[in-house]
Design a protein around this nucleic acid. Structure first.
Lengths: 251, 251
DNA sequence: GATAGCGTTCCTATAATAGGAACATAGCTA
DNA sequence: TAGCTATGTTCCTATTATAGGAACGCTATC
């Protein structure tokens, strides 16, 4: 991690505090990010003056309330989120399972929005969280339809479960299959017991660029009874509705 | 606005983008914040590399998805939020109106959490948003019970409605009344048609410091039929439950 | 087709930053 | 209790990223 600019170092501190479950001390943060203790302290002080980090009683730092304020409403600026929201709600209602929207941002796959199903056992992704690339339906879609801004990680493909695809050729085959069918699936490859079927949102107005992925997540047995092919068609239809709404808005 | 550090300038850009309803250009941002065009551009580029801002098709900038990621979960770090959540939900359920939790952060009053009621006409504060001090029940509580970190704005008190208290002596009288009764109220003083009754969350373990305010918001006629005194007692009881949960957790 | 405004890039004097060292304090150990 | 270790904070100066003017290419407008 080579952070040239001061701003990037400060942002790195924010993400580090975000990732840690508990408050962190100056020394620990500096050591983790390769910054000196005094630099870390000054950056934290600056962030603290703007409320992006807070100091607890013991002088340790945690994410501040300012981050919540900045985060709220940022999603509404995403045209694709605005276009997808009613479609998400309608699909979740109709299927009774969680549907969600994922897009590539800065080379990673981020959950943009979701509408949860009603089952006692249901997927509950966190909006704003990151999902892996090589072990998810959405990741395969981006490898198949994306513009190359999303790539499978270099080196060994991490194994999350017994079903995780860890071979390059097997992954290429899965990606080719997704390109051919127009949708992708994932059964237990990331989280045992969880299956996902996803389809790409492609807007012709944006030169056929893939803007996001529309996906349904359900417990694996439930997904099997819903039917992978059937859900694939359904997600493609939903993604097309999102794309149509986007172009309607754009006109 | 005197921002010495680079980090603070970058954060100011984030807040500016957050406040603007639409995407902003480099020139406009720089002009607004007193930065040169090239500096603004470099700060935006740094923020963009970390996903805190995004560039749309026309080269304009808007808040990025990274802010959502950082914002999500930041609230869960607040012990008072964790302690208050079940109480919020129970009160909202019992009363059918919106109840919410507000605390002082960096001299401002921030909505930490809420549980919405069920009415067609109901209060829907945004988590993370700021509320004024001199025109709200929570503000009066902080003036009465706070440690001085929250103060009424200098100069003229802004008038939000016909009922807004704009005189210093009248405000002092309202604060004294809140100190005496142990709760505060606000009828139409901020938003016409909206009434709020609030009570302070005071933890004896924290040397009697006021940690937050527990409040109910309802349309003014509805609040009248619920009874201000009755709701005052109810909010004090709820705030006491939150305080008790906090001390139980702290042990 | 001319023009005004925009985002972007280049360059160098400048000013903020980095990091070592010293300090005060808290927590732990013996 | 006394000593020790590790932490958060402050001070200081060489270094280095930064600020901002100027120039560039581009787009939209008239």
């Amino acid at each position: 991690m080579q952070a040239q600019s001061t701003v990037e170092k400060a942002v790195d501190i924010l993400f580090h505090l975000h990732a840690e479950p508990h408050s962190c001390g100056v020394t620990a943060i500096g050591r983790r990010l390769g910054l000196s203790k005094s630099s870390t302290h000054r950056l934290l002080t600056a962030l603290s003056r703007r409320g992006l980090v807070e100091k607890d009683d013991r002088g340790r730092y945690r994410p501040g309330i300012g981050l919540v304020a900045l985060g709220v409403g940022a999603l509404d600026r995403e045209p694709v989120v605005a276009a997808a929201r009613p479609v998400l709600e309608a699909e979740a209602e109709a299927l009774g399972e969680t549907v969600f929207l994922v897009a590539a941002r800065a080379g990673r796959l981020i959950v943009l929005d979701k509408s949860e199903g009603e089952g006692f056992l249901r997927a509950a992704p966190r909006v704003g969280s990151t999902v892996p690339i090589h072990a998810t339906a959405v990741g395969k879609l981006y490898l198949a339809f994306g513009d190359g801004s999303v790539e499978a990680p270099a080196g060994d493909l991490a194994r999350f479960s017994d079903e995780t695809i860890t071979g390059r050729t097997a992954l290429e085959a899965a990606v080719a299959r997704a390109a051919e069918r127009g949708f992708a699936e994932n059964s237990d490859e990331w989280i045992p017991g969880l299956s996902v079927v996803a389809a790409p949102v492609i807007a012709t107005a944006s030169a056929g660029r893939m803007l996001a992925a529309f996906a349904i997540a359900a417990p694996t047995p439930r997904m099997r009874s819903l039917g992978h092919e059937e859900m694939g068609r359904r997600m493609m239809a939903a993604a097309a509705r999102v794309a149509a709404r986007l172009e309607g808005v754009a006109q």
